[in-house]
Design a binder for these strands. Structure first.
Lengths: 346, 346
DNA sequence: TCGATTTTTGCATACGCTTGCAAAAATTGT
DNA sequence: ACAATTTTTGCAAGCGTATGCAAAAATCGA
């Protein structure tokens, strides 16, 4: 009825003098259609400004080519990069992504249920996990989920995560090798599985070495300025001063470092070691030079996307959990040690 | 035919003993339906795990409640925040957002055309502009576009941008008031309209003051490390050393500052002023303290979203361009001046 | 050239929902 | 209790595309 309504395949068919079905085939790669018909149709379509209606196509095909992306951690230092890489990788495979935030009151489950209503072909969940109930709904609907930055084995869901235990072990053994003895652990979110696993690994490694111990554990410290304040608090109590601080975020670690250098005159790394997590660009800057843990985010994103697409295209493949190894990056905030055998320094 | 196919409204209707239309009404807020029927239907829906199919609803209603978000600048320091705020604001109004990247080879127009195929109700374009051709297609389809961070007046498109000329004027007059005389301009992307307008404003202000001049203009310098390298190049030529550097990015400015302090021993702000753009968090950190320009991103995002929604809900409203004022933030990289009248310092 | 084969086309139905319209049921007033 | 009114329901026709099937057209072989 709309006077200015959009042209549809019928309109194009009428103008080109063919049937609607033929128009449809003209816009379906690989469909059976003669060159002559295609030419006519393309001309007509151009004249009418016709674009196939993907909503209608989705309904008919029962595939929306839409992927839901549930983003639960916007303060992640690589948030923008992750998003970019995820959307670009999915675009590459001709999927579109619907992004939804699930912080605060908008619960993960609520968002996931909405995705289902939009008939998404699959979902990537970044830094959160669905409840078992929603997982079951997705399983019933045969819509694959891939968890990124979270382990999904217990949910029978695919996941791509980093080996947090490995991170803890690497940090602990690096500090051990560098003869640090009194560790302080600082983290932002105590509920994060990565933080829990990593802390557990550090604790258990330390337990094996009687001359090393954990002086303090503090949670809820997040960001540069919080780190800067926290180091002042820590240093105020001389009897519990650590000689190594492990942070679950580079930003916080950089704040601590700045506090040491500018306000407290603490010698890093001689007097105090600082280790971050994430290897953000600023950590590598000459004046900062923070020893940290590098997480292979790019590979993890590719893996997550590929896993999702595989799951979409072949519903019979079973969920799988991939775990990536992180890497300790020795920079200026931990002592250099030399290997007595080879003479190499690291 | 699919054995495990999803339940639809027919299935629910059959189970609840009502017609399909009634099921539809049960899931349509405000529709005419008795409590009794609603109860029965809800029970049946729960049993079958039924969720309304929004794709089908969209087809029928000719409204997708989908908004396209074309993101052309992922390196913007606030990229993640902007995305979060945009998606959350739109979610608030019950729209979902499809994000697409338009960097590199994926051209703006191509992405916009795809959005149209997905029957989006509206589009937000961040840091890019469509061609006139696509603008016309959108106008014909009555789908509103809002440009964010770009002026759209010439395209007859709504836009929300910052007053770049005002920024240039503020920078120039601030430097003038602080008695700096020899300016160097450093920018990343010479094609960015903001950079062009801001530069033009600086140039014209400087032209009015014979004792001030522009020593050099350099483009293609982007990021902390690039800034650090650039200041070394600049300082190598003593005869063209500036006494004030204006950067179109805080990150670059911070790199320059670090270069001055750590490598070159340049006294900031006595010997050299540095002004950034964007007021990223790091600029406010105690050890950096960069004088910069603060852009009201949050307000701009709200405005963009509200403008879009207004345009969607009432197609008769005309495109409008909003321009926001930025604010010069005096910190440690420009001299303090005191107002001779009031004695205030700024 | 004619029958056999292949390619292209159109017909008709399905996808799952909304909604105008009219019929049915429930509610109200007297 | 009955007519008048209001609310609820069902019917049926879309929304724009895909696709199985059979008919039509084009191509091929001899």
């Amino acid at each position: 009825m709309n006077i200015a309504r959009r042209a549809n395949s019928q309109d194009v068919a009428a103008l080109a003098g063919v049937s609607q079905a033929t128009v449809s085939r003209a816009f379906t790669p690989g469909a059976s259609i003669s060159d002559r018909a295609r030419k006519k149709i393309e001309a007509a379509a151009a004249k009418l400004g016709y674009q196939p209606n993907i909503i209608a196509r989705s309904l008919s095909k029962r595939r929306s080519r839409l992927v839901g992306l549930l983003f639960a951690n916007w303060t992640h230092p690589k948030a923008a990069d992750l998003l970019k890489n995820i959307t670009e990788a999915l675009t590459e495979h001709d999927y579109k992504v619907i992004v939804q935030s699930a912080t605060g009151s908008r619960l993960t489950d609520e968002v996931l249920r909405e995705f289902l209503r939009y008939q998404v072909d699959g979902v990537i969940v970044f830094s959160a996990a669905p409840t078992a109930e929603i997982s079951a709904e997705y399983a019933r609907a045969q819509v694959p989920i891939v968890l990124l930055n979270q382990n999904g084995q217990s949910l029978n869901t695919s996941s791509v995560s980093v080996d947090a235990t490995g991170i803890g072990n690497q940090i602990a053994s690096s500090l051990l090798a560098r003869s640090y003895k009194r560790l302080a652990l600082i983290s932002a979110n105590p509920k994060s599985q990565i933080v829990i696993d990593m802390t557990k690994a550090i604790v258990s490694t330390v337990a094996e070495h009687p001359h090393m111990r954990i002086i303090s554990q503090q949670t809820g410290i997040d960001g540069y300025e919080a780190g800067m304040r926290e180091i002042e608090n820590i240093w105020k109590q001389p009897e519990t001063r650590p000689d190594a601080i492990v942070c679950t975020s580079d930003n916080t670690a950089l704040g601590i470092l700045a506090g040491c250098r500018q306000n407290l005159g603490i010698k890093v790394p001689e007097e105090l070691a600082i280790v971050g997590l994430g290897d953000i660009p600023a950590s590598a800057w000459q004046d900062q030079s923070l020893s940290t843990i590098k997480i292979p985010h790019d590979e993890m994103v590719s893996k997550a996307v590929m896993t999702l697409i595989t799951g979409i295209e072949d519903p019979s493949v079973q969920p799988e959990s991939y775990r990536y190894q992180a890497e300790f990056i020795q920079r200026g905030t931990t002592r250099i040690i030399s290997n007595p055998k080879t003479g190499e320094t690291q």
